[in-house]
Simulated assay, not measured.
Amino acid sequence: MSAAGPLQQGQQCQQLQGNILTSSGWVQGSIDFSERVLAIHGSATDPSLNQEHYILPGFVDLHVHGAGGKDTMDAGTAITTIARKLAQHGTTSMLATTMTAPMPDLEAALLALGTVCKQRSAGSARVLGVHLEGPYINPGKLGAQPDFALSGSLEQVKKLHAIAPIRLITVAPEVNGHLDLVRELTAMGMRVQLGHTLGTYDDGVAALANGASSFTHLYNAMSRLDHRAPGMVGAALAHAEFSEIIPDLLHVHPGAIKVAMRAIPKLYCVTDSTAASGMPDGEYMLGRQVVHKCLGGVRLADGTLAGSTLTMDQALRNLVSIGLDIADASKRVSTYAADFLGMSERGRLQANTYADMVVLDRALKLIAVYIEGEKIDLENA
């Protein structure tokens, strides 16, 4: 069906067979790969007509705070633990996401992240860069963020960006000076999301006109939709091409997820996962905040939702459980996030893309993960 160039010296060809979700639809056949996809052989199929496994693009998560008991703000080797734990749940590439914090804390966290962004560790998801979620947010809409919100400056962002590559930054556009900041950050090549905001509908529209291109965990920590005051949610539903959403079915009702899918063409899913992800119930840290994992969620002491324990394989299953077909769900956990970052070599399966793949059984249970051709050990997932 499709083919890439010949193998490079030292590369070995591997092969998987099953129902392959390619960029042009389902193919029943085989996929040859090394670090990248070499060729896909087979014919178009309806996977409901056979019993073979599903082979989908690896999951792309642009909002990750932690996993496996570690938080990105822990600095040191924490990100390696996080990236390995999430790889075992099918996340093949990710953005390490920071918390609103004093500048020395952010600098320490980014120092550790900068090293990992340059070189992927064996068994780990590819860390594509940093999602700076704050400190340039509205102090009146912190959500679970600590109270260290700042008015942003381009010089400050450049200083952080020199430590580790910032690919995405969350900004509250109504804060004084932030509309200019949105325009400046966009000119630097960063993606800007609107979030943790009390901004009006007009604030959101103005920010989109100045280069903002998505919304941080849609519905959560932003001004709500009302028929006379549409708020930031209204700006997203009326104008956005992209937005992230947390499909753990706790942060957002399934009906509200479906509303967003009808309104926003490339709505993509994130986990907003915390150190509690993949861990037993108990207390964990989210930046400087103590959070509590219980009843399938993560909350502050006052009950405020504080990130999640969601994994991307469960996100896929949740989307299917509320009525999406597997191909549509796959785009929302892989392709659209890659599109948002402008990455044509990830989030899809076709010749020459990275061999980032997940293999699932007919119940959508993860049975194999490949990251840039490396098979990940799932035994301790």
Rank of each mutant, 00 (worst) to 15 (best):
T170H: 04
L360V: 09
L179A: 13
V205P: 07
S30G: 06
K375S: 10
A83P: 12
S214F: 13
I40E: 09
E374D: 11
A39E: 08
I169Q: 05
D325K: 11
F33A: 15
V37Y: 07
T309F: 13
Y284S: 05
M261T: 00
H253S: 13
G134T: 00
G189P: 03
A238P: 05
T92W: 15
K375A: 15
S243Y: 05
I246N: 11
A83C: 11
I169E: 12
A172C: 11
A368E: 10
R299Q: 15
N318F: 10
G123Y: 04
L56N: 01
D302H: 07
D226F: 12
N19E: 02
A260W: 06
L316S: 10
G76N: 05
S153M: 05
S243E: 04
A301M: 04
R228D: 07
A263M: 14
H63F: 15
F33C: 15
G134P: 04
Q145P: 09
D281S: 07
G5H: 13
T115R: 04
T309G: 11
N352V: 04
G129S: 14
L56I: 02
P104Y: 02
V60E: 00
I264E: 05
R224H: 13
G10K: 09
L194W: 03
S321I: 10
P280L: 07
G123M: 07
V252Y: 00
D356A: 14
G140P: 03
M190W: 06
A39G: 10
K365L: 12
T216D: 03
H53G: 07
D32E: 12
